[in-house]
Nucleic acid binder design. Structure first.
Length: 296
DNA sequence: AACATAGTCAACCGCTGCTCA
DNA sequence: GTGAGCAGCGGTTGACTATGT
């Protein structure tokens, strides 16, 4: 299935790129743009496979690449993002301008992982930290306990909504704003008249009561709010029902507010004005995504 | 100086998911 | 609905460099 674009038997150049090859590739992409990587080597006159060209450009030659030491701020962000996203290096890199997934992956493996391991060892030796270390260890052993959200792509994909969710969507506390648009499509299309799309208005009202499939499109504001959450701050994860109901639009900083929403297995997702509302905690959000919503 | 070991990072490999015919 | 072609992702490898003995 379109595999093996770089056949080792081909007499293509392999290994480190020369300055001349770099120049040829850079010139070609400047003139013709990137993409069509398979055709690029032939057209540019490079004796490389397209995959290799793509990698070289994305990880090394791109003009917007920031090279050099990872700053402490960046490292802090990498750790937070890794805590949230796991080994989704591409997603993590997307939040660090100028950094590539390969660079972050390498940095993680050679610096951060070891550093964290050392810290863990150190803390494990002190009696007061033993419990925390054990909890951390448990999280690693059991993915189901992890706070890592198993998203799979930079854009959100199909979501299956059950009848239960349909009912919840009719609840006024699920607010679909400009930050999150939803197309809901019925799974039982054959029983329905065309068009098969179900309208969901800003109040969450729907006109079809069946199991549905939705396309979620979340903009940067939504995702930023998610990523900017301080996961170490328990107050971010507690329900602030009264506070939120009184001042739902007075967000300051990255700690999302919560709304008194109905629950799916005790959880609910609410999105409003670029902030993220309504998580009981991240366990529940993981549960929401993995069980009721099919993110994977 | 010579060798061994550890660390770093560019590049490769195999796979998945998306698009399109 | 199916399969080919492709881009992109994450894990791994291996060349190179730095440091220690």
């Amino acid at each position: 299935m379109g595999r093996n674009p770089c056949n080792p038997k081909d007499s293509l150049n392999r290994g480190a790129w020369t300055a001349i090859e770099d120049q040829i590739l850079t010139d070609y992409i400047k003139n013709h743009g990137q993409g069509k990587w398979r055709l690029l080597p032939k057209r540019a006159g490079l004796n490389r496979c397209g995959k290799s060209c793509r990698l070289r450009w994305l990880n090394y030659l791109r003009p917007d690449i920031k090279r050099g030491n990872i700053t402490p701020d960046e490292e802090d962000l990498i750790i937070k993002l890794h805590n949230l996203l796991g080994n989704r290096w591409s997603l993590i890199a997307g939040r660090l301008p100028g950094r590539t997934d390969n660079e972050i992956k390498n940095y993680w493996n050679s610096h951060v992982a070891k550093k964290l391991q050392k810290e863990k060892l150190k803390s494990a030796t002190t009696s007061s930290s033993k419990i925390l270390a054990a909890q951390d260890s448990d999280n690693k052993v059991s993915p189901s306990n992890s706070r890592v959200i198993r998203t799979k792509a930079t854009r959100c994909t199909k979501v299956i909504l059950s009848k239960q969710v349909q009912k919840l969507m009719a609840a006024p506390s699920l607010m679909m704003t400009h930050d999150m648009s939803v197309d809901v499509r019925c799974d039982h299309e054959e029983k329905m008249e065309a068009p098969s799309f179900v309208n969901v208005d800003l109040e969450g009202n729907t006109d079809k009561p069946l199991d549905c499939k939705a396309d979620f499109e979340m903009n940067d504001g939504f995702f930023s709010a998610l990523l900017n959450m301080d996961l170490s701050e328990p107050s971010c994860l507690k329900n602030k029902v009264e506070e939120d109901s009184n001042a739902s639009t007075s967000d300051k900083g990255g700690c999302p507010h919560l709304s008194p929403a109905p629950t799916l297995d005790g959880t609910f997702l609410n999105v409003s004005h670029g902030s993220l509302h309504g998580f009981e905690d991240f366990h529940s959000m993981s549960g929401l995504m993995e069980n009721e919503f099919h993110w994977l």
